[in-house]
Design a protein around this nucleic acid. Sequence first.
DNA 1: TGCAATAGGGAAAATATTATCCCTATATGA
DNA 2: TCATATAGGGATAATATTTTCCCTATTGCA
Lengths: 121, 121
Amino acid sequence: MYERKTLPNLNCGLDLVGEVLYGKWKMRLLWFIKEGHQRPSELQRQIPDATRRVLNIQLKELEEHELVTKKIYPVVPPKVEYSLTEFGKTLIPVISALGNWGDENEDRLRSVILNRLKSEV
Amino acid sequence: MYERKTLPNLNCGLDLVGEVLYGKWKMRLLWFIKEGHQRPSELQRQIPDATRRVLNIQLKELEEHELVTKKIYPVVPPKVEYSLTEFGKTLIPVISALGNWGDENEDRLRSVILNRLKSEV
DNA sequence: TGCAATAGGGAAAATATTATCCCTATATGA
DNA sequence: TCATATAGGGATAATATTTTCCCTATTGCA
């Protein structure tokens, strides 16, 4: 496993949130789990741009940060279900707020993002 | 300058927000600018854990994404001031929501984060 | 004269994150 | 018998981000 070489900053609320939400797919994972897509294969289908591998890794981190719980059913083929913890649920409104802001400003955001990319080349 | 090799996902609101806010210090920069710390040297003092260099880079991205404007005063020694754009101001409540969630859950977050780090070693 | 403050950038190294590829296992259905 | 679905991990490559180090310039102050 990758081992950190520097300690994270944990000075303020933003640092702390960053520590648990910073990860390309984490907010989407929480969101889709909330929406009822609880099995890894379903989550993968909802987020096809991510690889199975990275979803596993980020799910594990979410679990270690107590935002989700993982239930393993002892059946074959294997069945696993993730759920939000009570703690995790309290994050949903915040993720909503972010997503809504993005949706409300979709056109403008798309435009400034693409402009920046073009000027980069 | 670093040149991206893969295009970002811009499918949903969360993707779009991520594109403009994903950067270790960006939310903090927006926050402190809002608080009235507008000169680069002040921002650096508010965020001592970041290097001057990375703050410059991220400020430039925020500017290109039209969340802040940069005003250069033609004086010596140089004077520069950043301000939130109207667009940038609309992000403040969202950043607040994140920061507040972090503050409200400070103890628990600190605990789960540190636990995870310990088990990593 | 020499140092601090101001603002900022290039190049390269260090660190971190994500993707790719290949492996294990078992039951079901074609 | 062979492919598919299920879940997941190791090793390594690729990509991205952040840090480090060193450079430019000018004014004022000790």
